[in-house]
């Protein structure tokens, strides 16, 4: 069994009395594109900052490519690229100057060809002051600096914020290509559709705890169903005794829609003695599945 790209075991980070993350455990295999989703403030950035040794864990451990994130941080960072959630803040520098400056931190980057290649791909202007760039263009600079040294692991935190759809597509295409060449991607986002497009597996974090680590396909195929029922008589519309009903929307006194996580047999037997005019059972969208875990 190969060494995992990321191996987090019981990781906890508290900020005094405030919650950070609690007992987070997950494993990202080498060569995987792994999604990390959760609402704002769920603990995604805290987890990433512990991985990058900006924060020290209060408990548990984290290893990247078999190396301890606190003790072997420099070696890890030589093999890791990072796109922070904030767009490039080096506003006093020019685009080329900043990227050359970043590249000098990596001994393996010997020529400037990679900078030129990535600048062309993302259509970044040469010698433009970073302060004059839009958020999207500053985000592109952040992305480019993370890829200059051909990292084995790329950690991205909300990378698509500010990028236009064309650039998002180009970025995803690049990630897929780099992944084929062996790069592992840890993709943190609160936008499920981004994760869905790229990742094979996903961890859902909420209030500092991992609530699910699942394959995207399995998530989609879970027992959750989206049900719409139209009763023939309004006295039949009470389904409160049925367990597994969530997100109930009353459309009228005879019609309702809900997400159902129970057994379909049980639902059918519950409905068989009532007058049902119409029923539809659909696969819920991934967004709806996601919200199911959140709530």
């Amino acid at each position: 069994m190969s060494t995992p790209a990321i191996d987090i075991d019981g990781l906890t980070k508290t900020y005094g009395r405030d919650r950070g993350i609690e007992n987070v455990s997950l494993r990202v295999d080498e060569g995987e594109i792994f999604g990390f989703i959760g609402p704002n403030g769920a603990g995604k950035s805290t987890t990433i900052r512990v991985l990058l040794n900006l924060l020290f864990p209060s408990g548990g451990s984290a290893r990247i490519m078999g190396m301890d994130v606190a003790r072997e941080s420099k070696r890890i960072k030589n093999l890791t690229g990072y796109v922070p959630s904030d767009a490039c803040p080096y506003t006093s520098m020019e685009t080329d100057e900043f990227l050359r400056y970043c590249s000098r931190y990596y001994p393996q980057v010997s020529d400037q060809g990679r900078i030129e290649e990535l600048m062309q791909l993302f259509e970044v202007d040469h010698n433009r002051k970073i302060s004059d760039l839009s958020t999207g263009n500053r985000k592109k600079i952040s992305i480019i600096q993370s890829l200059l040294h051909d990292p084995k692991l790329l950690i991205v935190d909300e990378p698509t914020t500010g990028l236009d759809p064309l650039m998002q597509a180009r970025f995803f295409e690049l990630l897929r290509a780099e992944n084929k060449r062996g790069m592992t991607v840890f993709f943190s986002s609160h936008t499920l559709s981004d994760v869905q497009m790229l990742c094979k597996r996903v961890a859902i974090i909420r209030e500092g705890r991992i609530i699910k680590v699942e394959e995207i396909e399995t998530l989609r195929k879970r027992q959750l169903k989206k049900i719409h029922v139209e009763f023939g008589d309004k006295k039949d519309n009470d389904l409160s005794a049925l367990p597994g009903i969530e997100k109930m929307t009353i459309i009228s006194d005879r019609s309702m829609a809900f997400i159902y996580s129970g057994e379909v047999d049980r639902l059918i037997s519950e409905l068989k003695d009532r007058k049902v005019n119409d029923i539809t059972i659909e696969e819920p969208s991934l967004e709806e599945i996601f919200m199911h875990y959140y709530n």
Partner: peptide
């Protein structure tokens, strides 16, 4: 406070 630490400390430096 300029938020550059997230870049600087992600580069290979102790």
């Amino acid at each position: 406070y300029n938020k550059t630490a997230e870049y600087l400390l992600a580069w290979p430096l102790t």
